[in-house]
Design a binder for these strands. Structure first.
Lengths: 292, 292
DNA sequence: ACCTGAACACCGTTCAAGT
DNA sequence: ACCTGAACACCGTTCAAGT
């Protein structure tokens, strides 16, 4: 109740997209517009630009964002710092604050750029099966989450209202429109499918990253963890069922088992959507609440 | 391929439960065993223990873990540090390292304690409906995730093989056993339901926390964010559909809408499980891969 | 308009030392 | 067995100052 006594007027900070610095495109005349490489195979030296000198290209928000994503992919969020990023950009840490208010703003920009990587299906194609489109969207979302394991904690942290996020959300809603599900249940269905993919991609991404850091394949890492577990006497009994939770059996690799589980879960949810759609045809939806 | 050249023998660190310091119960004779309060209403002064002096009780892993959970709940993971925790325990930061190897170990312990809060259904009750048990488990898991918003990033980060995690996993598998689903699809179904709850609880928990920090109700916060969005001219069009993604309409509160979506999604997945079970009865499952 | 150096108030962790 | 102080190599961010 004494909530607005201490900070009288200023509304709480919500997002770069709302309270952030206005986007100012760089004004250097010699800049080739939108010449930034999309993929990240320029991981070596940033030298030898069109001018031939070894000075890095000038800063702007797009370049800062792109390099942030590259660093986060390569070294993980634990090692990502303003100083580290600035070093990579050939500049001091403080100059970043010209383009961005806080580190959170930077992460929000990087997050939105990653959302933009999700491939959305052709939504104008009326003849396409919504099941295929939903599957494609889920698979692409999962791929992106696994490629950038640092994003999942951020998705929970921020509002996700940048252009990349919105393009993704729009696509999700558009596909869900075509399921025949009553409007009443659409958001619940969206939640079911994409929160699942989010959770699945989170666990998978961290596991893949952990294996890479240890220099082991996923099966090797799994065997190592299981081996260590079985050395602990108390755990022998306790893990009799957890084993199938974590690992492969019967000659299946960890990756194969994961693919199988993901596909089955997606099929399950599509079957669930169809079942709820039929159910909605026979029952009358609950009345809309009165407008206050 | 040159992966094991640099760190020749030492296996990678996996978990407190595997590589951590052995648990040594405190040896003080005057200690009342297991007298730690379960819930967290002792948030005031830690003084005035049974001895009447104002010196805090002696350290042990359980107490360190309990205080960690309380601090993380109260102040969030961003403000949680070894120094802050030590201060709360009336000790210097370095003494914590007697009980724990790293901060990660500490977080893993706190995470497992939280998993232990999930209420598992009575698994010996043969007459209970698996749908009710699955719903109860999902609801309790969601409640715990929202109560401790700092846990979801950790679930992705660690292996989750402590006693609390294992009790939860066992319950999930036991309930799934009773669905009639073929063993082939059980882990996929587990994934569908609980990765969904994980994702849902993550977003919900962060939103609730964000509102609390801003000193606003969820509806107030939502109106504030939407108001700010609509002030941005470019966003007017773009948000015509995202509005229903984020918010309430027709007099429904944000909380009511969220309950509705969660319930619908759970119903959807239960319907999906039933559909896949029927499908499995008519089709023959794919052959198990040959053992390598 | 854009970038810097110095400074502040923090981090996790190591190490030698105390009792 | 348990705890400490000092130190190392870091953080994000502010501020006054440079060009």
């Amino acid at each position: 109740m004494a909530s607005e006594a201490d900070s009288p007027k200023r509304p709480p900070r919500t997002s770069v997209w709302l309270d952030g610095k206005p986007v100012t495109r760089p004004r250097r005349a010699d800049r080739t517009d939108r010449a930034e490489p999309a993929a990240g195979d320029t991981k070596g030296t940033p030298t030898a630009t069109r001018s031939g000198t070894d000075q890095p290209p000038p800063l702007d928000r797009d370049r800062i964002t792109a390099v942030s994503v590259r660093l986060l992919d390569a070294e993980g969020s634990a090692k990502f710092s303003m100083r580290r990023l600035a070093g990579e950009l050939g500049v001091t840490a403080m100059s970043l604050y010209w383009y961005v208010d806080t580190k959170d703003d930077l992460l929000e920009l990087a997050l939105d750029a990653v959302f933009g990587e999700v491939r959305v299906p052709d939504l104008t194609d009326e003849s396409a099966d919504w099941r295929d489109q939903l599957r494609a969207l889920a698979v692409s979302y999962r791929t992106v989450l696994v490629r950038h394991p640092w994003v999942t904690p951020l998705i929970g942290k921020y509002l996700n209202i940048g252009p990349g996020s919105r393009a993704f959300s729009s696509a999700v809603l558009a596909v869900m429109d075509r399921t025949g599900l009553a409007p009443y249940g659409r958001m619940g269905a969206v939640s079911a499918v994409f929160q699942f993919v989010y959770g699945f991609g989170t666990i998978e991404g961290h596991f893949v990253q952990r294996c890479a850091e240890a220099g082991l394949t996923q099966d090797e890492y799994h065997r190592h963890a299981m081996g260590t577990i079985h050395e602990q006497p108390d755990f022998k009994r306790a893990f009799s069922n957890t084993e199938e939770l974590m690992g492969a059996r019967g000659g299946e690799t960890v990756e194969e088992k994961r693919e199988r589980d993901f596909t089955f879960a997606l099929d399950l949810m599509i079957a669930g959507i169809e079942a709820m759609r039929e159910r909605g045809r026979h029952e009358t939806p609950p009345p809309a609440p009165a407008v206050g």
